[in-house]
Design a protein around this nucleic acid. Structure first.
Lengths: 337, 337
DNA sequence: GCTCCGTTTGCACGCGTTTGCAAAGTATTG
DNA sequence: CAATACTTTGCAAACGCGTGCAAACGGAGC
């Protein structure tokens, strides 16, 4: 390790001929410094390449400026899009994102939150997994804010952001009915998260109300490959469906590819299909997939606003839960429209 | 803000009936603590929910454990895949990733590095943009390590990880020739980064050597939409190419979709096509794209190893540059094979 | 019992900040 | 000119931790 480390406020103070407090105040918005000293300090700082040590500042202020993002499956289109929006908005309010990947084991969400605590993160945003109640409590007790996105939990402390999954399932079932489809299907993964199951239940319920037959298959993860397998299972059934709602756009892409290239089906003539997320690929002309758009920017906005909020009405039991509507993006994978 | 903050080592010490140093040593690997005190400390820490304050620890040790990832276009398949691998490997060596998104302005790479300095990051990995030489120097002088991935720079301090872009261009030109293609094309973006230009130059040079005509078009970014536009331009030319190498898989996907759905061409019969990156979508059966795979895991491994390395031979001028081979993944978008 | 040696423990200082407090300085007013 | 109000500045005390140093401890060997 090199002997010469980072330059400290002390050195800047000496060079500028002022006290250490002066340089500190120079870099503290709203502090009382004369224009003259400020200028001298800034010159000295620039010449020496000084930058405030946010570790020390966080120590003093009890506010690190760090927000921890806890994510798995980062490489997935929907996740990375949400991630992108979150980091941008966090930066806009002067926070910095710390990234914890929970791809490995599943109990690691708890370990991730411990990491957040160790670095005294001001807040944590959880995009996957569900933390143990005790860890959640520890975070809240420590003054750390928590946001759960698309994890339908009932813990009272964190802000919970969810979509109207159930209603979306209903809406798409009606769209299928309007397109003249007779036997509906829902292609789900085995993950069984509340969002996925909400879409399934809403879809099945609406189909029943419409008097339509509906079959459900669940397999694997929420990815492309699982979609292919689901297609193979469903399209070889005796009661082959003529409309399928996939719990995820990736599933839908896999399903479409298998339906076309392995079963030679034409979409939407022989098979109507819909997805959920509105990932970029859904708009590609190979797929042209009708799907529900996750309101990524709104979700990020809500999360960030809550994080930097003054905490008014925190104990007033104010709504710690936000339900957003997933907009239906109509494309060519369903007849009519 | 809640009055009760994080629990400190002091409180743990009092509860365990030991000195504060004892609890510090308990959480410092290799320090001298008796089994008895360690046990008492751990119990107290667990009961109180104590976690070492890494901000303060970083202050003492001059080593924050933070590695800064500077990225733009996070939502892009290749970028998010690399990101995923980097975060996983960083976590494996006990580092934590700090994320800086430079999507907004382009001079913001410098601001991103300043952020890294403020948080006293042990190192920064730059996946996009190119920092100003003065900032780079400041980082290095401060003992911070730097990695540039696929940014072909000549600054002496940082580790530079690059691919054999030029050679890849040559290899694919030969593959086209072997497939019996007569007029080649290269579809590039206007970004003009060294990697993209390297592929282009290698391709053009090899085509010339093979005595084949080659046309080059550049347009927009490296995304899907740009690929569609490039296809429209190229496939309406008088000398319509029968083979195209796209600088990026996303470009290739857009190109393929336009060629098929707007021009009714069949691939690979009427048009051979290849890409670069081997994003997940390249393997989807809608595309089945022959492409070069970015050795993502190797890249991440090299980067992380260098970051945690002891710095041996740091001034010995040891190779600060790594060139990796992009493996050709053969699929169905080129005839023969 | 005494010495010697190795292990464990506490004290106190330092890391780079922020910030309350009081002193000093400057401007305003009567 | 004196009195007052306001601004600027330095001092020193935190923040939570690691660690060198010396004291205390414990056991082995004589």
């Amino acid at each position: 390790m090199s002997s010469k480390l980072f330059v400290s406020a002390q050195e800047v103070a000496e060079r500028a001929g002022v006290s250490r407090s002066a340089v500190s105040r120079t870099f503290t918005p709203g502090a009382s410094v004369s224009a003259d000293t400020r200028k001298r300090v800034l010159e000295a700082a620039d010449a020496l390449g000084y930058h405030v040590n946010h570790l020390a500042r966080g120590l003093m202020r009890n506010e690190s400026g760090i927000v921890c993002l806890i994510v798995s499956d980062v490489a997935t289109p929907y996740r990375s899009a949400l991630l992108r929006e979150l980091t941008i908005q966090l930066q806009n309010v002067g926070k910095v994102a710390m990234f914890v990947n929970t791809d490995r084991s599943d109990g690691s969400v708890d370990r991730a939150l411990q990491q957040a605590i160790r670095y005294r993160a001001d807040a944590s945003i959880i995009l996957s997994g569900l933390p143990d109640k005790s860890i959640t409590q520890l975070c809240l007790r420590s003054g750390q804010r928590l946001v759960l996105i698309n994890r339908d939990d009932d813990q009272p402390g964190p802000l919970k952001i969810n979509l109207d999954d159930y209603e979306s399932g209903g809406r798409i079932a009606m769209a299928f009915a309007r397109a003249g489809c007779r036997t509906l299907a829902f292609a789900n993964s085995e993950a069984g998260t509340p969002s996925l199951m909400g879409r399934e239940r809403g879809f099945v319920a609406a189909a029943a109300k419409l008097g339509l037959e509906v079959v459900v298959e669940r397999y694997g993860s929420t990815g492309y490959e699982a979609g292919k397998v689901l297609a193979q299972r469903m399209l070889t059934r005796a009661d082959r469906p003529d409309a399928v709602f996939c719990a995820t756009d990736l599933l839908a892409c896999g399903f479409m590819d298998a339906a076309r290239h392995q079963f030679g089906m034409s979409i939407p003539d022989q098979l109507c299909i819909a997805g959920f997320d509105d990932i970029e690929q859904a708009s590609w002309s190979s797929f042209d997939l009708t799907t529900f758009a996750q309101p990524v920017v709104t979700m990020a906005t809500k999360a960030v606003q809550w994080l930097v909020g003054t905490g008014d009405g925190e104990e007033a039991g104010e709504a710690h839960s936000v339900r957003l509507k997933a907009e239906l993006v109509w494309r060519g994978s369903i007849r009519g429209g």
